[in-house]
Computed example of a mutant assay.
Amino acid sequence: MAIWNNLLSRRQAAAVMVGTALSFGITSAASAAEGQLRIAKQFGVVYLLLDVAAEQKLIEKHGKAAGVDIKVEFLQLSGGAAVNDALLSNSIEIAGAGVGPLFTLWDRTKGRQNVKGVASLGNFPYYLVTNNPNVKTIADFTEKDRIALPAVGVSVQSRVLQWASAKLWGDKEFDRLDKISVALPHPEAAAAIIKGGTEITGHFGNPPFQEQELAENPKARIVLNSYEVQGGPASSTVLYGTEKFYKEAPKTYRAFLDALDEAAKLIAANPDEAADIYLKANGGKGDRKLLLQVIKNPEVTFKVEPQNTLGLGQFLHRVGAIKNEPKALSDYFFTDPRIAAGS
């Protein structure tokens, strides 16, 4: 299995965007193929299901059980925009990003590539953390502050921040904080919050970076919890793909879901082993004790069934961020018995 741990340079990412711009709205001529599975993931414990599936070779295992040899490759990116570009340029079959980027792509490809969700990666509370002592709520951020997140106006962190802004200032002001938001990978943003002394005074991140910030900088505090905005536990990070892959590679698709399901059970039964797998997949970097704290957090659940995602999509439609209104999970997730009971 080839695992690419390098983050695309800005130049490479720009090249991908150009290629995507040319093909946006045009169904790729390339055919989806059984046995080919290229997956884009990002940073954080939220991708632990993929790390476990990779380490245990669960996708290959379930593929063989279904009579197909699956070649699995992982591409590591940062930000929903880059992940969406990779999917539309036919560089990957499975995109791993926030539910915000899923809604963006579902909306823009409806009637063409028909991108939909495949599975959730679990429920995780995302924290907007600040090291600015003057910031107690999002209303306290000023022009002098900068809020780091994976992709401005696209990532789930950005969309949740917009939702929170709309609740505070009204729908017409939903993107009020976009102008002081900057795109930055989680590791770099976390380092800025911990060290201090930079223009980055806020970071809307994910585990374990947010916990690391709170543990290593005594001035760091939580300004916003995504669960508070979303109305409870929610699947903020998901996996999605094109209708072509769903229809033309059914054995590979099912083997992938089977592998994720098994990975979720392994994490629940053996959190210590799961923590070791995460550390190995990320070059041994990280505090194991802090990592276990995240995995065992009662607010965290590893599962493939999406939960509490519809509200964000309806908000995005209400403020005009997407044209099509999602009315049920089946509108933006592919059909599967393990997904059907989600929300």
Rank of each mutant, 00 (worst) to 15 (best):
R108L: 10
N114K: 05
V99Y: 11
G80V: 00
G117M: 04
E93N: 12
A139F: 00
P133G: 12
T137F: 06
G80Q: 10
L128Y: 15
A148W: 04
L161G: 11
D145H: 03
V160P: 14
T142D: 07
A148R: 00
G153L: 09
T130W: 13
E143L: 01
N123T: 15
A95N: 12
S91R: 14
G153F: 06
A148Y: 04
E93I: 03
S155M: 00
G153P: 04
D145N: 00
A139E: 09
L121K: 06
A151V: 02
Q113M: 03
G111W: 09
L102I: 13
G96F: 14
N84Y: 10
D140Y: 02
T109S: 12
V152T: 03
K144Q: 02
S91I: 12
R108T: 07
Q76C: 03
F103S: 06
G153M: 06
N90H: 13
L121V: 08
K136I: 05
E93K: 05
I138P: 07
P101R: 07
V135P: 02
F103D: 09
T104R: 13
V99Q: 09
G122F: 14
V129G: 13
D107S: 10
A139D: 07
P150D: 09
V118K: 04
T104H: 15
S89D: 15
L121N: 13
A82D: 10
I138G: 06
E73A: 01
V154E: 03
D145L: 01
N114I: 01
D145W: 02
P150E: 06
S89K: 06
N131Q: 13
L128A: 11
L77N: 03
E73F: 07
T130K: 15
R146Q: 11
R112M: 01
T142V: 04
